[in-house]
Amino acid sequence: MTYKLILNGKTLKGETTTEAVDAATAEKVFKQYANDNGSDGEWTYDDATKTFTVTE
């Protein structure tokens, strides 16, 4: 399945997607991506749209 990440950071904004077997796997990928790019904030997940959002 395709999962989407929306970044609403102070310095990093945008979207990216990943293919993953489940939401937990996608979350690990996205959290590593956000960490690698210095983005940290409040995470939410919408199962209906398969979208993670991180807001700083």
Rank of each mutant, 00 (worst) to 15 (best):
T25E: 13
T17A: 06
M1R: 12
G38T: 05
A24D: 08
V29M: 09
T51D: 00
K31T: 04
G14C: 15
K4H: 13
G9D: 04
S39G: 09
L7W: 12
A23G: 04
A48S: 11
T49G: 03
L7T: 05
L12S: 11
T49E: 05
L7S: 04
S39I: 15
E56S: 10
A23M: 12
A26F: 01
G41V: 05
T53I: 08
Q32N: 06
M1K: 12
A48G: 07
I6Q: 04
E15Q: 10
S39E: 11
E42Y: 12
T16R: 12
E42S: 09
S39W: 15
D46Y: 03
L5M: 04
G38K: 07
K28G: 06
K4E: 04
E27D: 03
D36H: 08
N35D: 10
S39R: 10
M1H: 14
N8R: 10
L5V: 04
E42M: 11
D36I: 11
F52A: 01
E27I: 07
E27K: 10
M1G: 10
G9N: 06
A34N: 03
D46V: 04
E56V: 11
A20E: 03
T11N: 12
K28E: 08
T44E: 08
A24F: 08
L5C: 09
V54E: 02
A26N: 00
N37V: 15
G14V: 14
T25H: 11
T49S: 09
E15R: 06
W43A: 01
L12I: 13
M1L: 12
K31Q: 07
T49C: 03
E15K: 06
T16K: 10
F52M: 00
Y33M: 05
N35V: 14
Q32G: 06
A20S: 06
N35A: 15
V29P: 00
K13H: 12
D22I: 02
M1D: 14
A23P: 08
E15A: 09
G41T: 05
L7M: 12
G9L: 15
V29H: 10
K4R: 12
N8S: 08
A26L: 00
A20V: 03
K13S: 09
G41H: 06
K50Q: 08
L12E: 09
K31E: 03
A23N: 05
A34D: 01
G38V: 07
N35E: 14
K50V: 02
T2P: 04
A20Q: 06
K28I: 09
Y45H: 00
T11E: 09
Y33N: 01
K4P: 04
T25W: 07
T16F: 15
V21P: 15
D36T: 09
G14M: 14
D40F: 15
L5R: 00
D22E: 03
G41L: 12
K31A: 05
D22M: 02
V54M: 10
I6M: 05
L5W: 02
V29K: 08
K13F: 10
G9V: 09
N37Y: 13
D22H: 02
G38D: 07
E15D: 05
Y33E: 02
I6T: 03
D36Q: 12
K50D: 01
T49N: 07
T17F: 13
K28Y: 07
K10A: 11
S39N: 11
I6C: 07
A23L: 08
L5G: 02
T51W: 01
T25R: 05
L12M: 12
A26Y: 00
D36Y: 09
A48P: 06
D47Y: 07
Q32T: 07
D36C: 11
V54G: 01
E56M: 11
A23R: 12
A20W: 02
L5T: 02
E56C: 08
L5E: 03
G38R: 06
S39L: 15
T2F: 08
F52S: 01
T53G: 02
T25P: 00
G41E: 03
A48M: 10
V54L: 13
T44V: 09
V54Y: 11
T17V: 08
T18H: 06
T53A: 04
F52G: 00
E19S: 10
K4F: 12
N8K: 11
G14Y: 15
A34H: 03
N37E: 07
T53L: 05
T16V: 15
E27T: 03
A23C: 13
E56D: 11
D40A: 12
L7Q: 03
A20R: 01
Y33R: 03
A26V: 02
F30T: 00
D40H: 13
T11H: 13
Q32D: 06
T17I: 07
Y33H: 04
D46M: 04
A34I: 13
F30H: 01
K10G: 10
K13I: 10
E19V: 15
T2I: 14
T53V: 08
K4Y: 14
V21K: 11
T2G: 04
T55D: 06
N37K: 12
V29S: 04
L7V: 09
A48R: 10
G41A: 05
S39A: 15
D36G: 06
A26P: 00
A24T: 09
T17C: 11
N35R: 15
E56T: 08
K31L: 08
G14H: 13
Y3Q: 03
K31V: 06
D46I: 04
E27H: 11
V21R: 10
T51M: 03
T53P: 01
E56F: 14
Y33V: 05
D47W: 07
T18P: 01
K50L: 10
G38S: 06
T11G: 14
A34K: 02
T53N: 04
K10I: 14
Y3E: 04
K10P: 12
Y45M: 00
K31G: 02
K13V: 09
L5I: 03
G14T: 14
W43F: 04
K10D: 07
Q32F: 05
F30D: 00
T55A: 06
G38Y: 10
K50A: 05
L12A: 10
N37D: 04
Q32I: 09
T17L: 07
K13N: 09
Y33D: 01
A34W: 13
I6V: 10
I6E: 03
K10W: 09
D36P: 04
V21Q: 11
T44F: 10
Q32S: 07
N37I: 15
T17K: 06
I6N: 03
N37W: 14
T55L: 06
N8H: 11
K31W: 07
I6P: 01
G9W: 07
A20F: 04
Y3D: 04
N35W: 13
K31I: 08
A24V: 09
G41K: 04
Y3G: 04
G41S: 04
N35C: 12
E27Y: 15
T11L: 12
T49K: 06
D47F: 07
Y45N: 00
A24P: 07
Y3T: 03
E15N: 06
T2R: 11
V54A: 02
Q32V: 08
T16A: 11
F30S: 00
G14L: 15
T25D: 07
G14P: 05
D46P: 00
D36K: 10
T18N: 02
E27A: 09
A23I: 09
G38L: 10
A48Q: 10
A23K: 13
E15C: 15
S39K: 09
A34F: 08
T2M: 12
D22Q: 02
K13G: 06
Y45L: 01
E42Q: 10
G41I: 04
T44Y: 09
K31Y: 05
G14R: 14
W43Y: 02
V21I: 12
F52Q: 00
V29L: 11
M1S: 13
L7G: 02
W43E: 00
A48H: 09
T2Q: 09
A34G: 01
L12C: 15
E27P: 00
T18I: 14
A23V: 11
E42H: 11
T25A: 13
E15M: 13
E15Y: 13
D47N: 08
Y3A: 03
F52D: 00
I6Y: 05
L12W: 14
K50S: 05
G9Q: 05
Y3K: 03
T17G: 03
T2A: 05
